[in-house]
Design a protein around this nucleic acid. Structure first.
Lengths: 300, 300
DNA sequence: AAATTGTTTTTTCCCGATAAAAGACATTAC
DNA sequence: GTAATGTCTTTTATCGGGAAAAAACAATTT
């Protein structure tokens, strides 16, 4: 069963949504770039759409015959890549269960539990290791370092160093840089979210990531930009896990972002530094208070 | 041929060197910790040593019968792990050849060229990707970002940030911390090297790494400590590649280290900062001047 | 009884094989 | 003649299998 066709299924589903909007589909290469897949996959999609009577396909002509129905879509769970599946299972184990620091991680066991080959699990663990939560013993098992208070402190230390520097670089960018347009757009989205915070507070997470990534990009340093992956990953799972006071927290964060944006637009280094520090401080607080007291670092 | 027994061969060679020093070998578990391998491997080693008449092995008695001869050793090249072999081949390609930024990296081709399976190459590339020199296109090839001037600048920017912070933390460590003993030992080794620099200048590289790792460890931050892997890797291959002025460079660096050590011992934050900056500046200079002008970043 | 040796089981590391997906080349249409 | 489609080739993603190495368990030895 060597490889699942989730790329095809996911692209197929996304392509179905395009059908609502047009009478006929564009050329194969165009569809390829639109969906982010190769022509090979596009042609598989078109072939199935013809088979199921969704379109009439004759060379350049791809006429839409009917609107897609729910049963035309592939089930959501079949569109995930193996890497995503493994990551989710692993993080669930890591956060839900009593995952103590020092615990051993067994590739074979993980693979069996998730129902995948060992190769995929190995590759996942190697990729995951850069987050600093696990460590490999040569020719032997992985060791869980644990999502401890120490981890959170080390993470935020670097984050603060990087973000202060990026924010300063951002504010120093020339007037005509494209980032100011991006920032304006983000500001508008923040204001919209702020006004409807009661119902849309759970949309903050995504906005938060886009905002901070924009700032980090101003550093023009790949190590700083890449480090945001660590933060994003932690926050992503952390927020799934800890929903306490979510609305309240996000409401505060949106306001802090708006102040931060205003400071950036003022281009006054002192104001930028102050607004950035203030936001980072409360972000750190949020993360720290959410770590259960039981989860302390274990002596090696 | 699924897996080579390089762990056994390497441990065997190292065990041979122990034979010179003693009349009999310790217990199996003890040998295991000494060589850093499992008892299973220890027993394979002992079995072969008995076969080749090196020792007499009867349960707890492991009497040395004769001194090891050159032909007892396994060839050096058979003691390298696959990961090391792949890394070396890859770096040779990356540095020697005209490896332009933007170039595609082909897993299959690399695997065939080196004569290993694709899995090992994939795992290597994933591990290597954290150095920021390559990047993966989903479901497709890797892209070489290139060892460019931009890379060197981004690397040194982070390095300087991290090392200044670590050095400050180091100087603030309590009097009775064990690091001061380590520092004293490093100082002695630096002085010895300085006095024999004419003949031993190529030993600096290893000393350099130990010195900086000691300082970084004072940060007590895993991300800072881990980042030194990137620096060490670059410097390791960089020095293999660029031998110009090596003696001169190392002579200067040793003196800078000694000044840096003195500053740390003074525990005066101002002096530490100054000595650290001075050394980092010349380290950056060395790295930058070694990057050929032709190797500029290519537009994506 | 604590440590060591003998034996068995489990896990890691790595290869070869195969379907999915990408990419290259040839052909046709506008 | 450019851009699309049709066809063929190569590469990536993933699995299962098997030898090396680690780890667990049992039997001795001091």
């Amino acid at each position: 069963m060597s490889k699942s066709n989730n790329v095809y299924k996911d692209a197929f589903n996304r392509c179905l949504r395009l059908l609502d909007e047009t009478k006929s589909l564009p050329s194969e290469p165009e569809l390829g770039t639109l969906l982010g897949v190769s022509r090979t996959t596009v042609r598989s999609i078109l072939a199935r759409m013809e088979e199921t009577g969704l379109i009439d396909w004759n060379k350049r002509n791809k006429t839409v015959l009917r609107a897609p129905r729910p049963e035309d879509f592939f089930p959501e769970e079949e569109t995930d890549s193996l890497a995503e599946i493994i990551e989710r299972s692993f993080m669930r184990r890591l956060l839900a269960e009593g995952a103590e620091a020092g615990m051993q991680i067994n590739e074979l066991e993980l693979a069996r539990e998730i129902g995948v080959g060992t190769t995929s699990v190995r590759e996942f663990l190697i990729r995951f290791s850069r987050f600093g939560l696990i460590e490999k013993r040569r020719n032997s098992h992985w060791v869980l370092k644990g999502f401890t208070r120490a981890f959170a402190l080390e993470l935020t230390e670097i984050r603060e160093m990087f973000e202060l520097r990026s924010a300063a670089a951002f504010a120093a960018l020339p007037e005509d840089s494209a980032v100011w347009v991006d920032l304006d757009m983000l500001e508008i989205q923040h204001r919209q979210l702020a006004s409807e915070i009661a119902t849309r507070f759970n949309e903050f997470s995504e906005l938060d990531e886009r905002f901070h990534r924009l700032i980090h990009r101003a550093s023009h340093n790949r190590f700083i930009v890449d480090f945001y992956d660590v933060i994003a990953m932690i926050f992503h799972y952390h927020y799934q896990w800890n929903k306490a006071e979510e609305r309240q927290r996000n409401e505060v964060a949106v306001q802090e972002h708006l102040a931060y944006i205003a400071a950036l637009k003022s281009r006054d280094p002192g104001k930028v530094d102050a607004a950035c520090r203030k936001h980072l401080k409360s972000a750190r607080q949020t993360l720290l208070t959410s770590i259960p007291e039981g989860r302390q670092a274990q002596p090696a």
